[in-house]
Design a protein around this nucleic acid. Structure first.
Length: 669
RNA sequence: GCGCCCGUAGCUCAGCAGGAUAGAGCAUCGGUCUUCUAAACCGAGGGUCGCUGGUUCGAGUCCAGCCGGGCGCGCCA
């Protein structure tokens, strides 16, 4: 809503500057729009007078006065004032603004991206999901919702590494430690929390390898066998990966997270994506066969370096700059992890000229279909949507993979795809570790000498907070709170459960989003279980309070949303102009209108904490309003109705903001 | 050694396409429920924005160099 006003003001100011000072319209400084610290000073502020002071050799104050004098009427603007220090302050036509805000939301622009792919979650399918995975998924899913909010079509992919060491290790565990047959594992996998069983087994395998390193030969053989479909090992691997993925999907469903496509690494191998990527890389000279030195026999990709070594500098010794290169194909002919990833990235961007087959994996809670890649045509279903071939790709992966993600961009550049490289975005974020208190609570012995503020999660050691355990505890805590507040709810009833679930989801999703992504989270269980202060439930609570007010108005006056909006059309605007409580109501309405700007900024900076902070700030402002400006009890009708409008609009925007974070507003709490 | 990230109140963090008086949550202390739900609100205390220099009318925000911390840099995945 507010971005439209920015654009109108900016464009008008630019026109005026050109006229006033005979400036070249291409060389105008950016007309920055900001917000005065207090609504009584104005709604929008323009600082361009400061920028021009030097060029024009004129005091900012005089320039501001010139601008204000020349500006003339702007649609939606009530008046403009020059501040004594040089700001140009703009006051909006408040009544008109509110009436428009409560109308339909204009279609978003879409910003020239035909289709974006967001890859997130991508948990190794060999054990239960933990809190670190929740950060990834919460960031990824919020990114998806924001992009769609801005009008960009998005395809959500979840990459499954079903042929890696992690799955291999669990296979070894079932075979050699638990000594179970395929059928026995299949039966076990039908029982609840198979992922928890594998979590424990995985740590046992790790210890088992440590006891006797010779056993690592079993891992190597298993890893090899996993790639051969006919092998019984591969069948066991498939079974485990498939069942664990179902567990992960169920966990993510509790977070309101769904996907469009599961991409299996096994399919990338079987369909020989790599061999096609290799052709492209080789033909374009992006990789070369090393004939001498330690990398002899390998296909390598030279790494970017600002100063390539001189040709005739002789053999590179200690002193000289060493040209580095990354091995893509090993001397034994097998492809490295980077190579597989390059092939996958090429496919996402439609530069591979090869495709998967697809089968329907299932239907998700929302009714949306989930597809899965497959490598055989016989089980392939008919996909309604074409997958891949995006013109922007967002890979949500933690910062430890930054080097690898950089290599992907470099490979694209090297094959002459600079545009695709630019639109390959690594959405990086710091890891989730454990606070010392939480690590201790999990039974982990801390070294008393090492006073580190966090303990790294380790799947191998089984050290971590499992996602479902956390969600269970959150739900239980929320249920207790709700039952304490509402006598009519039965302890095990569906309504209490639904409310508790919504609160738990909001609590964890908000928690995972509120830190900026470059910040390491030292996850503390007690902190995460808090529903007070800056938290998801705080934001939900504000929206629920708004609902209560509107319900009371309806019950007493028969005033529903439509009737309220209709009444505003011919209501005098004076209560909104009142410098006391009118400023509170207007300030709330104005802040609520900033969602479009906030969404835009979140995507521009890929900083989703901006959205979370906005949600909290708006909820805070609503609570201030709530305590200062009674609605139902207000006797003056215009004042009451404008306040009701503030409540209605604030609830609408809070609901939208929560929805962008994958959170719902419960009917009560 | 090179690259990326972090350093703001006792703790955890916002603020960074420069702009008006540096904010919030938690914790501490003191208030507010016969009122639209106290998961809330009001108030108090608490800051050399790591250090030094630079750019600018203006720097927590941009640049450079330091200091401290984290992560990454394999013919592993």
């Amino acid at each position: 809503m507010i971005l439209g006003m920015h654009a109108a003001v900016r464009s008008r100011v630019r026109d005026v500057l050109v006229d006033l000072y005979d400036l070249d319209s291409n060389r105008l400084p950016d007309v920055a729009i900001q917000y005065p610290p207090d609504r009584s000073m104005g709604d929008l502020g323009v600082t361009v007078a400061f920028e021009l002071a030097r060029v024009l050799r004129k005091a900012p104050r005089a320039i501001a006065a010139d601008i204000v004098g020349a500006l003339g009427p702007i649609e939606g603007v009530d008046r403009v004032e020059p501040a004594p220090n040089g700001y140009v302050n703009i006051f909006l036509d408040r009544a008109r603004f509110v009436r428009e805000a409560l109308g339909p939301r204009p279609a978003p622009a879409g910003r020239g991206i035909r289709k974006a792919i967001v890859e997130h979650t991508a948990i190794n399918p060999n054990k239960a999901a933990h809190v670190g995975h929740l950060r990834n998924a919460a960031l990824g899913d919020t990114l998806v919702r924001l992009l769609r909010f801005l009008g960009i079509p998005v395809e959500i992919q979840n990459y499954i590494d079903d042929t890696g060491v992690q799955v291999a290790d669990v296979v070894v565990g079932f075979r050699h430690i638990e000594q179970l047959s395929l059928e026995e594992v299949a039966a076990l996998s039908e029982r609840p929390r198979f992922d928890y069983h594998c979590w424990d087994l995985y740590t046992r395998v790790t210890a088992w390898f440590e006891d006797d390193p010779d056993r690592l030969a079993l891992r190597a053989r298993t890893l090899h066998d996993l790639e051969n479909d006919a092998d019984p090992t591969a069948q066991l691997g498939h079974l485990i990966a498939d069942r664990i993925v179902r567990c992960h999907l169920a966990t993510m469903d509790r977070m309101n997270i769904e996907y469009d496509l599961l991409t299996w690494e096994g399919d990338i191998l079987r369909l020989r994506f790599w061999s096609r990527a290799f052709e492209v890389l080789q033909q374009t000279g992006a990789i070369r066969l090393e004939t001498t030195g330690p990398q002899a026999g390998c296909w390598v990709m030279p790494l970017d370096s600002d100063t390539p070594p001189p040709v005739d500098a002789g053999p590179a010794d200690e002193g000289g700059p060493k040209s580095k290169s990354k091995v893509i194909v090993r001397s034994n002919g097998t492809v490295t992890y980077v190579g597989k990833d390059i092939a996958y990235q090429f496919w996402k961007l439609g530069v591979l000229e090869r495709d998967f087959h697809y089968r329907l994996h299932g239907t998700q809670r929302s009714g949306h279909a989930l597809w899965s890649t497959t490598s055989t045509t016989e089980e392939a279903g008919r996909s309604q949507a074409a997958f891949g071939k995006a013109d922007a790709v967002y890979n949500v992966i933690d910062t430890r993979q930054a080097y690898l993600q950089q290599l992907l961009k470099q490979a694209l550049t090297a094959v002459g795809r600079a545009r695709e490289a630019e639109r390959s975005v690594h959405v990086s974020y710091e890891m989730v570790a454990l606070s010392p208190a939480t690590a201790r609570a999990l039974g982990h012995d801390l070294d008393p000498d090492a006073e580190r503020p966090f303990v790294e999660v380790s799947g191998r050691k089984g050290l971590g907070v499992k996602a479902d355990d956390l969600l269970d505890r959150l739900t239980e805590a929320a249920r207790r709170e709700v039952l304490a507040r509402h006598d009519d709810l039965s302890a095990d009833g569906a309504e209490a459960h639904a409310i508790a679930t919504a609160i738990a989801t909001a609590a964890i999703r908000y928690f995972m989003i509120k830190y900026s992504r470059g910040k390491l989270i030292a996850f503390d269980i007690d902190e995460a279980l808090s529903f007070e202060g800056e938290s998801g439930p705080y934001v939900q609570y504000a929206a629920v309070r708004a609902t209560n007010i509107l319900r009371k108005l309806y019950d007493r006056d028969g005033l529903d949303d439509g009737a309220l909006v209709a009444a505003l059309a011919k209501l005098p605007a004076t209560p909104l102009e009142d410098p006391g409580d009118g400023t509170v109501a207007w300030g709330l309405l104005f802040e609520a209108a900033r969602l479009d700007e906030v969404a835009d900024q979140s995507i521009r900076a890929l900083e989703l904490s901006v959205l979370a902070k906005y949600a909290f700030g708006l909820a805070q402002m609503f609570n201030t309003f709530y305590h200062r400006c009674p609605v139902v009890a207000e006797e003056d009708e215009p004042t009451r109705l404008w306040r009701a409008a503030a409540v209605l609009y604030c609830r609408l925007q809070l609901t939208r903001t929560l929805a962008l974070m994958g959170c719902e507003v419960p009917p009560r709490m």
